[in-house]
């Protein structure tokens, strides 16, 4: 009969129904994502004198952003802080994920719940609690003074890049634990047995089998942590001080206190592009390294 033709038509109808179902979501995203990002681009190409925004398109803002040494410092510092956060978070989380994946037998689910519960507190208050811990009159200092271990409060704990790294390594821990756990859990246990049978010791076995096979989870977690933390505003604002300020603080200042939106838009786009390039380079390098250690 006309089976083939009818099937083709049905597939076509099906596809139309599929696109129809997608339309509302795509319309909302076109309005709330594509249009605003285009506007951001347009704004970044404008000039501003006083509070008047010029009509012509110009590269002025980009020249200003790229030419200003303070922004370059801020850019590299943000990358360095986020890079350190990523590294510290991964190093702390890996043994934890390894423990749950390989050494917990029955209560895996309970461990995973226990590891995620702290992340259901307000993000603001989680960051703020570190200010309370590290501050001049904070928990650590008041405890040390009370115990008589120091005479005056330690001032180096708060308002520096170290405080930002510590706070973010705490705030983003779940984003490292879960992907690494998933990739470790997927590893075929018979591969490990085979390695042992063939004479590999535990360390050699870990380096040759477990680590390379868990690398996709590690790389995924790295991107998941690195990209958003480069744009974090709350943590540097609360615990960073002047030496720990990051890109988002400068962008926010252009939009609020300074009131130069075109400049803020250019700074945001340059930052995002820079972060995207560095991230892409990192992912390629990490994949190559994984192949090399195998």
């Amino acid at each position: 009969m006309t089976g083939r033709k009818a099937t083709g038509r049905k597939a076509q109808d099906d596809r139309t129904a599929g696109y129809a179902l997608l339309t509302p979501t795509l319309v909302v995203l076109a309005l709330a994502l594509a249009a605003p990002m285009l506007l951001l681009l347009v704004y970044s190409l404008k000039s501003q004198t006083g509070i008047t925004i010029g009509g012509d398109l110009t590269w002025t803002q980009y020249q200003a952003v790229l030419g200003r040494a303070s922004y370059r410092t801020l850019f590299w510092r943000s990358l360095a802080i986020s890079g350190a956060v990523t590294l510290v978070t991964l190093l702390l989380a890996y043994p934890m994920a390894y423990f749950v994946a390989f050494h917990v037998k029955r209560a895996k689910f309970l461990w995973l719940i226990a590891l995620t519960i702290p992340f259901w507190t307000s993000y603001l208050l989680r960051v703020f609690s570190w200010k309370v811990i590290l501050g001049f009159n904070g928990v650590i200092n008041s405890a040390l003074m009370r115990l008589g271990l120091v005479d005056a409060p330690l001032e180096f704990l708060l308002y520096n890049p170290f405080a930002v790294v510590l706070t973010l390594a705490h705030a983003w821990a779940a984003f490292a634990i879960l992907p690494i756990y998933v990739s470790l859990e997927k590893i075929d246990r018979s591969l490990l047995e085979a390695a042992t049978d063939l004479g590999d010791g535990p360390w050699r076995r870990f380096r040759r089998i477990t680590l390379p096979l868990s690398m996709p989870g590690v790389i995924g977690a790295a991107v998941l942590i690195f990209v958003p933390t480069t744009g974090d505003y709350v943590t540097p604002e609360l615990v960073g001080g002047p030496k720990g300020a990051m890109l988002a603080n400068a962008i926010e200042a252009q939009f609020n206190s300074v009131g130069n939106w075109p400049m803020g838009a250019a700074l945001a786009l340059v930052s995002m592009t820079g972060v995207a390039l560095v991230t892409a380079a990192f992912v390629l390098a990490a994949r190559a390294a994984t192949r090399a250690i195998r």
Partner: peptide
């Protein structure tokens, strides 16, 4: 996309 960029882009919209 960092939240701050989403925030300012929507502000512009």
């Amino acid at each position: 996309i960092p939240d701050i960029v989403l925030g300012i882009a929507l502000l512009l919209l």
